[in-house]
């Protein structure tokens, strides 16, 4: 198998540049589309990293994210927020994010953490070796999601249902109070 590190670096640089454009541009539509470009690069990175299921899911979710965000932005207000830039706040936050970056590099790049390309796989070895005999599923990721860790998937469905319910409750047209006001009037 060939070495994928150069491709991965190229995609990561693309993602970082796309994020800078998304953060610093004044137009909201440009920012949303830049974030979508970052998401599609992420999908390609998943393909290189040997995760085709994740890549497909990321692609579908990315299109939905684009639709939802464009609905939330361009149909309402596409103008940038024109306000004076608070220099002290920006400098302070940049200093603290430098600290976050440094400590993150110390923790996740230091000793005791698995090197890139050498995962621990203490639990996953069992899944890989017993996946086919135990669940009759050729795709080990599917067997982990739907059989070994099915309770996780149930929790995911609960979270998804709750968030969609909350969004519907926020977006409904006629609330209860409005009806009472109409009756009172």
């Amino acid at each position: 198998m060939e070495n994928i590190t150069p491709q991965l670096y190229a995609l990561l640089v693309f993602m970082i540049v796309g994020s800078i454009v998304a953060i610093e541009t004044r137009n909201l539509l440009s920012a949303v589309i830049s974030v979508a470009a970052v998401g599609f690069a992420l999908s390609v990175a998943f393909l290189f990293l040997g995760a085709p299921d994740i890549a497909i899911t990321q692609l579908v979710v990315e299109v939905l994210v684009l639709i939802i965000l464009i609905r939330g932005t361009i149909l309402l207000d596409n103008t940038a927020v024109e306000s004076h830039r608070d220099t002290l706040a920006v400098v302070t936050s940049l200093i603290f994010f430098g600290l976050v970056l440094g400590f993150g590099a110390m923790i996740f790049g230091g000793r005791g953490f698995p090197e890139f390309g050498e995962p621990l796989m203490r639990v996953s070895r069992v899944y890989v070796h017993t996946g086919l005999p135990a669940t009759y599923c050729a795709n080990i990721v599917s067997s982990v999601i739907l059989d070994f860790r099915a309770y996780d998937t149930m929790g995911e469905a609960t979270v998804l249902f709750t968030s969609i319910l909350g969004a519907l409750a926020l977006l409904r047209k006629d609330g209860k109070r409005k009806e009472e006001e109409v009756v009172a009037a």
């Binding site: 299921d53 899911t57 996953s124 899944y127 709750t162 968030s163």
Partner: peptide
């Protein structure tokens, strides 16, 4: 590692739900 992929698959879908909210 299939375990991390399964967890990230869950995380992506939850991210979509949270974003819609």
């Amino acid at each position: 590692d299939p375990l991390t992929q399964a967890l990230v698959l869950t995380s992506i879908v939850i991210g979509l739900g949270v974003l819609s909210l």
